[in-house]
Write a protein that binds this DNA or RNA. Sequence first.
DNA 1: CCAACTAAGTCTTGAAAAGGAACGGAGTCA
DNA 2: TGACTCCGTTCCTTTTCAAGACTTAGTTGG
Lengths: 153, 153
Amino acid sequence: MRWADLDRENCSLSRALAVVGDRWTLLVLREAFLRVRRFEDFQARLGIARRVLAARLKHLVEEGVLRKEEYQQRPVRHEYRLTEKGLGLYHALIALVHWGDEHYAGRRGPPVLHRHLGCGHDFRVVASCSECGEEVFAREVAPHPGPGARKQG
Amino acid sequence: MRWADLDRENCSLSRALAVVGDRWTLLVLREAFLRVRRFEDFQARLGIARRVLAARLKHLVEEGVLRKEEYQQRPVRHEYRLTEKGLGLYHALIALVHWGDEHYAGRRGPPVLHRHLGCGHDFRVVASCSECGEEVFAREVAPHPGPGARKQG
DNA sequence: CCAACTAAGTCTTGAAAAGGAACGGAGTCA
DNA sequence: TGACTCCGTTCCTTTTCAAGACTTAGTTGG
């Protein structure tokens, strides 16, 4: 199978990865969450090839993760901003950051802390069950076919 | 910058993506969470090029996300199993699945549901604050330098 | 013994994507 | 006029990927 055909799979992870599973895409979104908005700034901060950056931004705009907004005329210039759909990726991103903190932080600790403005504390994200509120771990989850499942081939 | 140099960045997301940010890697891990363990099974289910699969599995073993375990001698055969470190990626994976469900499920609904064995209900994962327990959203989080931060260049 | 089969890779070849640097366009500023 | 800014695009080389054939080490059946 080709990577480009991933979005046709009947799997939410495949379809999510068809959008953000490319090399660099999640790093572009990291910058977007840090309020980076312009082509030159993304490029300078990531050191990514301009060609690749242009392709990623275009794809993210097409998918509705970013939107392109005019911030000046003469000459016309655009900036890239997260949409609501894009903001929804925060949970996945912060989960990866947390995993990186746990397994790759040096002796001194994680490079970045996150403060929850709601309560004012530095925090880590806990994945909890929408039904009972308890923290959820991999071994306590059983996947089963949902309404959108296809019959097996 | 090259993708291969990502792991040298002082950023937990970069370091996490250096491990699981490659094309296919998270799909390999999806299968691992579904209890797929053997080379042939990964290959058949994903339709991935064998060369690429071999490279991904090797990298994941080197990083301690999977471990290779002998399941028979004569001929010696190994299977791949998630380590504790690998299980820790579940939160990121399920967050992506949830995002995919929200934005790419068809009319009929998501292809897969997840039952929390703790309470017996189908659930979605909620990202909540370790300190106050409330649900956390992107706009309510302020990142700031942690103990492992490097001075700016 | 020989052929067919299994599982886990490795090798080969052509196509696609990435990396890096230079170039273009549309305008501003001095 | 010439230099500068921002946002890409183009060109060329290197790397990675896709697909299938091949290899290795052993088992099973005739």
